[in-house]
Amino acid sequence: MIVALLNQKGGVGKTTLALHLAGEWATRDRRVTLIDADPQGSALDWSQQRGREGLRRLFGAIGLPRDTLHREAPELYRDADLVVIDGPPRVAALMRSALLAADLVLIPVQPSPLDGWASAEMLALVAEARIYRPEIVARFVLNRCGARTVLARETAEALADHDPPMLRATVGQRVVFAAAAQSGRLAREIDMESPAAAEIAALVSEIDQLGVERREP
C-alpha cells in the first residue's frame, strides 16, 4: 500500500504523522519506505538527526520532491510492504503526482473551521485524481486536537458524515511529538506508555483494518 499524507494547508502535522505512521508500521515488522516529497525536507532532517543520535534505522527515507512521484513511488514499493509519502504544501504539480501514486490518501486537519474550508481545494484534487485512478481511498485524520475540547468535538461531528469520512482514531497536541521531532525519535521510543504512542498505535490499527490494497493503474 502507498499512503500519502496531503493537505494544501501547512502546519497541520503531516510530517509528524508520516514519520510516526512509518515508524509504527516498522515496529510491526513491515518493510517501510518514507518519501519526503516536501521541498523543506523535514522528514529527511529527522532521519539524519536519528543517525547522529546513533539510533538504529527503522525505515528508509528518500527525498523526492518531484512531480514524477506517480512513476517513482510504485518502483520503490516493489521492495517494501508500505510506502509513506510526506506530501508538499501548496505545490500543485507535486500534489497531483502524489495523489496519482497513492492507494490511500490521509488528509490531516486540525479542529478548526478554517481547516475544513481549506480542505475543499484538497478534495477537488482528490476528485480529479479519481478520474484516472477511481480506486483511491481517502480519509480525514483529526490531528493536533484536544480530545475534550468543544472545537474538536464539533469538527469531528461536522466530518462524521462527510465524503471522504474521518477516521475514528484522533491524535492530540502532545509535547512528546515536539521532543520526538528534535531528537530523531518516535513518541513510543521516548515514552511507550504515553497517550501519543497509544494514539498512533490506534491510528495504524484502524488504517490496517481498512484493507486497502495496492492496485496497479
Rank of each mutant, 00 (worst) to 15 (best):
R90K: 14
V150L: 15
G60M: 04
A102T: 03
H20F: 00
W117K: 14
Y132F: 13
E216T: 15
V137K: 05
A138H: 04
R168V: 13
I35K: 10
L186H: 09
G184V: 02
A138D: 03
R28L: 07
G41T: 02
A80W: 05
R30T: 04
R52A: 15
Q182D: 10
Q110T: 14
R214H: 15
Q182K: 13
Q173A: 14
K14F: 02
G51M: 06
G87Q: 06
R52N: 11
D36M: 05
R139V: 06
L167M: 10
A118M: 11
R78I: 06
L99R: 07
D103L: 12
L17E: 01
I207M: 15
L34H: 02
L186M: 08
W25A: 04
A120W: 06
R56L: 13
E135F: 03
T27C: 01
L114H: 09
A92H: 14
V150F: 13
S112I: 06
Q110V: 15
A120D: 11
R188C: 09
L104G: 09
K14I: 00
P74F: 09
K9Q: 10
D115K: 04
A169N: 06
T68C: 08
V176Q: 08
R215L: 09
L104Q: 08
R50Q: 00
H20L: 00
D163N: 11
L159R: 02
D81F: 05
H162Q: 13
L21S: 03
M1R: 04
D161M: 06
A196R: 12
G23Y: 07
W46N: 03
A80M: 09
D86T: 02
V150D: 11
F59D: 00
V171N: 05
P65W: 03
I107N: 06
R71E: 15
Q40T: 05
V141K: 01
A198R: 15
F177E: 00
G63I: 00
L104A: 10
R56F: 08
I62R: 14
A118P: 14
T155Q: 09
V141R: 00
G87T: 06
S112C: 07
A22D: 02
A158I: 09
R57F: 05
E189R: 02
A138I: 08
A127I: 04
A202Q: 15
P195W: 13
E154I: 14
A43P: 08
A147Y: 05
M95H: 13
W46L: 06
L6C: 08
Q48W: 09
T68K: 07
E154C: 12
G23A: 08
C145F: 01
A92Q: 13
G41N: 01
H70E: 15
L6N: 04
L167N: 06
G87I: 06
P113E: 12
L99P: 08
P39S: 07
D45V: 11
L17A: 04
D103Y: 12
A196T: 10
I131G: 09
A37Y: 04
G41R: 04
V32K: 00
